Computed example of a mutant assay.
Amino acid sequence: MMALKYEQIAEWLRRRISDGEIPPGGKLPTGREIATEWGVAMGTVNKAIDTLRDDGLVVSRQGSGHTVIEQAVARPAGHRKRGTSRLSGAAPYRRVGLPERAVPPQPVVDALGLGPGEKALKRVRVLLLDDGSSMSLVIAWFTLAVAEACPKLAEMAPIAEGTTHYVRRCTGRSPVEAEDITRVALATEEEASLLGLERPAAVAVVLHTAFDQDHRALVCEVGVTPAHVFEETDNYPMGQQN
């Protein structure tokens, strides 16, 4: 199915941002320039830019156009329901170490469908609160098939267009469903160190697995959040059905 014109324009701008052609803090082309280049109405251009803004890629300031964000943000693991913005729950973060190939823990092995001793690509980030303290640790695991098709996953730099869009662009695979498993545990020594906790410390652990249209795992994230920060709210209908 061919993407709509505004989606094509949004993808074109994402690629320019990701390739560094439009750097952090840089301005997008004006709406009129984009409309002329693509031969579309301004309404189509505005819809494309709204898509990037909802994804947290650009900010709009009256009188100064649209600017690529300078501070990368990311979301905690899980809760990626359809219709939620990339900015939903997003926060600034810092990378921990370099991405590396390693054998994941057994729950991740099972989620990704790996064989015994099979490695995956590991990326670690810590989301930050407004005061700079740690909010949540997220360890993302990608199969080597995905990692090899998406070389930027092995780099230290943030992926400006967002990991989901980048993986889709490189592989043609998009997340269409997910499974989140949440449990309570005591932080491991490594988790406590990265989150600045004194052991023993209770944490909420979310195992989030995203699957593509063929129900193949795209990524498995392990999110670890201190008990004093973790909060989950769910709204749902009640009452008898007729």
Rank of each mutant, 00 (worst) to 15 (best):
G115I: 04
I181S: 13
R16V: 05
T163W: 08
A227E: 15
V222A: 01
L207W: 02
T171F: 12
T188E: 13
M42W: 06
K81V: 10
E177V: 05
L197G: 11
S174C: 09
V205A: 03
A147S: 05
V176G: 03
T225V: 12
V167F: 07
D55M: 13
V203Y: 02
P116H: 05
H165V: 01
I181C: 04
A178V: 07
R32S: 15
E11W: 07
S193L: 13
A41Y: 04
P92C: 02
L57R: 04
P24Y: 03
P151S: 13
T188A: 10
G56K: 04
Q240L: 15
V73L: 15
T84R: 14
Y6S: 07
S174F: 12
V203F: 00
R15E: 15
D50E: 14
P104A: 05
P116L: 11
G63W: 10
E155H: 09
G89R: 01
V176Y: 02
E21Q: 02
D19V: 02
T84W: 13
S193E: 12
A227W: 12
A192H: 10
P151V: 00
M2S: 13
P23W: 02
R173T: 10
P237S: 09
R123K: 11
L28K: 07
R86K: 03
K5C: 05
L194F: 11
T163Q: 14
P99D: 00
S18L: 02
K122I: 08
R53L: 11
A41D: 14
R75I: 12
L52H: 08
G65W: 02
A120S: 12
A157Y: 10
Q241L: 15
L87N: 10
T143W: 00
K27W: 01
P107T: 06
R101N: 13
D180P: 08
G25A: 04
T36G: 13
A111P: 06
Y166S: 09
L194K: 03
R94G: 14
V68I: 05
I17G: 07
P237A: 05
I69T: 15
T164L: 11
R82N: 14
G117F: 15
A217N: 03
V222R: 01
V176K: 03
R183T: 14
T67S: 08
L128W: 04
M42R: 12
G196K: 08
P99I: 03
T233I: 03
V206C: 08
Q8G: 06
E190A: 05
E190V: 13
E190T: 11
R169M: 00
L207H: 14
S88W: 11
V103R: 08
R125L: 15
